[in-house]
């Protein structure tokens, strides 16, 4: 637990009168990959949205890169170096691929070499072929690549990745896993929400299991894989 970039302690949040999160705690180490696991409706996406400022945080604390960011405006959180890749991708379909990347562009924060469209096209060759085309014409997998590339254009220190493998063909899922490992190799910390144990096990160092808005398990990925009881209680559908 040497150097956490993101520390979430006891956050509560919800939609209108409905409470969804009841005190979520988790920690993301600098340059590490953590997986937030759980079934549909357990509170995975809500946790990521609350961290990103897209949902009011009603209680608890969020510390990112040395600052208390709970209830900051999303743009301030993004500028502080936290990237967000939404579950439903939210590509700007009226824009071309290159323009989508332009929306995400922010100055580098020093240290690592800045992300440029050219570097991203190398990682995602499909995007290079479509750079001048409308994003509306892309397949689901291509949109998923674009939404990750768009977030990387902001040169983040950490990325919240919501359900990266959901609804994608196996070959694309593999590409996503490669992309996560590439981010890790570049020194970017990743917190991903995931239902698939296989995907999480392939990329994550640390695992959290969430159920009904609270963390039920926190430990290494290996520990989760070894813990049959936790898996059948909280993950098996």
């Amino acid at each position: 637990m040497a150097d956490p970039v993101l520390e979430v302690s006891g956050i509560t949040a919800g939609y209108g009168p409905a409470e969804v999160l009841f005190g979520v705690d988790l920690t993301l180490e600098r340059g590490a990959v953590a997986a937030l696991m759980g079934r549909n409706g357990a509170g995975k996406s809500t946790t990521l949205k609350a961290i990103m400022g897209l949902l009011p945080v009603r209680g608890g604390r969020i510390r990112f890169a040395g600052a208390e960011i709970a209830n900051w405006a999303p743009y301030r959180i993004a500028r502080a170096g936290l990237g967000y890749v939404p579950e439903d991708r939210r590509i700007f379909t009226d824009l071309t691929v290159a323009e989508n990347l332009e929306v995400g562009r922010r100055a580098a924060r020093g240290g690592r070499p800045p992300w440029t469209p050219e570097r991203l096209y190398e990682i995602f060759p499909n995007l290079a072929e479509m750079r001048g085309r409308s994003a509306a014409a892309m397949s689901g997998g291509e949109q998923q690549m674009l939404t990750i590339a768009r977030t990387l254009m902001g040169n983040p220190d950490a990325v919240l990745l919501d359900e990266p493998s959901e609804g994608l063909a196996p070959v694309i899922v593999e590409l996503m896993a490669e992309a996560v490992l590439r981010m890790k190799a570049e020194g970017i910390a990743v917190l991903l929400s995931e239902q698939s144990l296989d995907f999480a096990a392939a990329v994550a160092d640390r695992a959290y299991v969430i159920e009904r808005g609270s963390i039920r398990f926190a430990g290494s990925m290996e520990a989760l894989e070894a813990d049959e009881a936790i898996r059948t209680t909280y993950l098996t559908v």
Partner: peptide, 17 residues
């Protein structure tokens, strides 16, 4: 470009900084 993006989804534009 930002105006066009915000016309589609202004919340996402905010989440991109």
């Amino acid at each position: 470009i930002l105006i066009r993006a915000a016309t589609r989804d202004r919340e996402m534009v905010g989440a991109l900084g």
